[in-house]
């Protein structure tokens, strides 16, 4: 009985020793600024806010015009500076500049992926102003789909959107 017990334990030893779980690795581009759009309608004292989707959204990172054009409002931020500047065009209403100011710090993922840059949003604004307000709802940029900021368009003042 003792022999069987020891034999079983030895086999468990071996399986424990040989079992390793590989690290998984995500690209830095998985961490993107995600923008949501809201339309605000004010009728007397009643204010209604609705989700909005636009017929077209085009953005390009200004410092790297050779990179792809982004056609969805998910924008990878530059890790070499504290500000990323994009040219954006919503519903073909002309090109504006989108400034995203953030703080950067470094975190360690694992020994397969190495280090990664974390972004924490500070300020977002456009020149010229294209919407009534921009609110940061989730300052930490994560690798899961989560809105980081919302652009609010008043249907009276920014009717063209």
């Amino acid at each position: 009985m003792r022999i069987i017990l020891i034999y079983c334990i030895s086999i468990v030893f071996l399986f424990v020793a040989c079992n390793t779980i590989p690290d998984t690795c995500k690209e830095q581009s998985a961490w993107q600024l995600r923008i949501g759009f809201k339309k605000v309608k004010i009728a007397g004292n009643l204010k209604t806010v609705k989700d909005s989707t636009f017929r077209s959204f085009i953005a390009q990172y200004i410092s790297h015009p050779d990179t792809n054009v982004f056609k969805t409002p998910s924008l990878p931020l530059a890790q070499g500076s504290d500000t990323s500047i994009f040219s954006i065009d919503i519903n073909k209403n002309g090109i504006q500049k989108l400034y995203v100011v953030y703080k950067r710090d470094r975190t360690f993922e694992n020994y397969t992926c190495g280090f990664r840059t974390n972004f924490t949003l500070d300020t977002i604004y456009t020149i010229p102003k294209i919407c009534d307000s921009i609110i940061i709802v989730q300052p930490n940029i994560t690798d899961v789909y989560q809105e980081n900021c919302r652009f609010y368009f008043n249907s009276d003042t920014t009717a063209q959107y």
């Binding site: 690209e27 830095q28 410092s63 990179t67 190495g114």
Partner: peptide, 13 residues
């Protein structure tokens, strides 16, 4: 040494 690749080709740290 470490390398952090970026979406933008010239932005690698």
């Amino acid at each position: 040494a470490y390398v952090i690749p970026s979406y933008y080709s010239t932005d690698t740290l």
